[in-house]
Design a binder for these strands. Structure first.
Lengths: 339, 339
DNA sequence: ATGAAAGCGCTAACAG
DNA sequence: CTGTTAGCGCTTTCAT
């Protein structure tokens, strides 16, 4: 059985001090004599005292909990983000409530409402839809600080960490240009989301910066789990086929590799591949697949920093948007084009 | 801004009733006249009243929160489990606090302590180590109901949902026997965990039941992400090679497929493959890989049921262990052996 | 620096 | 069936 009946009062009694002093020792640790502190700590240890979280939350108006609203933890991107966030908030005594939005507006609204209701100290969220007015209104109305995770919402006056998709894709293209590639295919999901829009932007920017017209080699999948097999094969059999591919997501990557094998193309001798987003698969594939990836730890540290700053006073400061860089890790899947 | 100042008192005033009545309307909804209820509901709506979760938790001793301790959400198995649990508890107003144990004993202990401290109404956990005495002690000492997720802990007197690894692997073997296979390799991680032990057991049982001696075709990887490439290749080049493989985890599966391709074996014409655990990869691979899988939704429903039953009185009932069946979904990766 | 006392907002026990 | 009241366990003034 848990020692569920030991209250701060008992500790005070055993230590021979007042409950106020015990509370002071437990919390800010200022204005307490060394003597009292020691007595209290001894009593706490002896009784195995554990302060009641609920009482604390009620009185201090802080639940020491961060609400996370992601579309789906089953997506490794968010699973890693969650793990990193948990890690970065752990030392501060925060725990994370996780809710899956599943791209369902009503669900996302409900989760946000629940977060408000439960008095989350902060919220990090990545809604499926960046433009729903009700969702924006809800976020703007949140009384606790919110950080948007790679989302930009029209009028939401909140902080955001944004992945630098433009530079990421641009540098991948530039890298491939340097190897001699001129026709690079880009496979994305067809969602009208910031990441997809920005990646397209980076792709075009790279071509323009290199003095070329962006080619019509962008493949758009309807969902994250649809195959690019047929589409890529068509491109490969058309005149003037691509010699390289930048593919978003493991799923796309796998089906693309299958299409390449089917077409009799070897990686990297005949065709180069870069994946957006790292995975065990990309790492252990033979040849290992080059990837464009963000550092979940860095991103989480940034989120933590923004949230804690707001919590420590800067509630009304203007919203900040921080751009997180992509790293391009070149592995064996890239080489000069065949010829 | 959130309407953070509206208290139950305000609602009572507006509705012209007492706070007690408001509370009754909000909660059990018994012993309230239709008239009062309507007044209260009107007032709640008008004021957009949201009861304070902290106050509720403090007074009613229920946080409406379930703690989940999994080794790593980054593992799709647990990500899916979490999502299913969230779904099954949502309707009851529970939210889930998720902690990653990362197979680190100290971390797991700390998470469990935090769960206790924060007054979780229930806990579902899958510790990395099933035998650590301190962890067992901690779990036994939890004051709220705990459900072990595919773990068996020596003396922990808690409920558990257990996957039926024995029957699962046995049926996979039997299925392969029926196709004509006699030499089936089994690739597992080398963890001394219940799942691994049970799978081995099922494998042996299948052979014995078929009147054969279990062959020395079990491969053990040190970690979940190590490759089986070399080991499988060695087996394939040895005398009397296997004609089928049952592989645990996507990682193992991928490296195994690579080894098969390397050895010039086609799936399923020359070699059959069954994966333990489903994945996008298994589904979209060509040929699609047969899988042994559990239904996360059913499992979650079972967990919910066990937890709620305890919460509704049966606190002291003897611990129950429920075996969850594996489903064998045969896909294109299996066929009769070559010859 | 410390103690006493006043709540935080709600539920539950008890009157009526 | 409804109102009143006493806390849940803690933090935080306010005196001292």
């Amino acid at each position: 059985m848990q020692d569920r009946k030991i209250r701060i009062h008992d500790v005070a009694a055993l230590a021979g001090v007042s409950v106020g002093s015990v509370s002071r020792v437990l919390n800010r640790a200022a204005n307490v004599s060394a003597e009292v502190r020691e007595q209290v700590e001894r009593a706490v240890a002896a009784l195995r005292y554990q302060p009641s979280h609920a009482a604390r939350a009620l009185r201090s108006r802080s639940s020491k909990t961060i609400g996370c609203l992601f579309s789906d933890v089953t997506n490794p991107l968010y699973a890693r983000a969650f793990r990193a966030l948990e890690e970065s908030f752990r030392a501060d005594g925060y725990m994370l409530l996780l809710a899956n939005g599943l791209n369902d507006l009503e669900r996302e609204r409900e989760s946000l409402r629940t977060f408000a209701l439960r008095g989350m100290d902060g919220v990090v969220c990545a809604p499926g839809n960046e433009r729903d007015p009700e969702l924006i209104g809800l976020i703007d109305a949140m009384s606790m600080p919110v950080v948007l995770y790679d989302r930009e919402m029209p009028t939401a006056r909140t902080d955001a960490v944004l992945f630098d998709h433009v530079s990421g894709v641009r540098s991948a293209c530039t890298q491939l240009f340097a190897l001699g590639h001129r026709r690079i295919a880009l496979a994305l999901w067809d969602a009208d989301s910031r990441p997809v829009r920005r990646r397209t932007e980076g792709y075009r920017a790279a071509y323009r910066a290199a003095g070329m017209e962006p080619p019509a080699l962008i493949l758009r999948q309807p969902t994250a789990t649809s195959s690019v097999f047929d589409d890529l094969l068509r491109l490969l059999n058309a005149p003037d086929p691509p010699s390289a591919l930048i593919a978003q997501g493991t799923h796309t990557l796998v089906s693309a590799l299958r299409a390449l094998a089917h077409a009799g193309l070897r990686v990297p001798q005949d065709f180069s591949v870069i994946s957006i987003g790292d995975s065990d698969f990309a790492q252990t594939h033979v040849p290992a697949i080059s990837v464009l990836r963000t550092n979940a730890g860095h991103v989480a540290a940034q989120v933590r920093c923004m949230l804690l700053e707001r919590l420590n006073g800067a509630r009304a400061a203007p919203p900040r948007k921080v751009l997180m860089p992509y790293e391009l890790e070149m592995r064996a899947s890239c080489g000069p084009p065949a010829r």
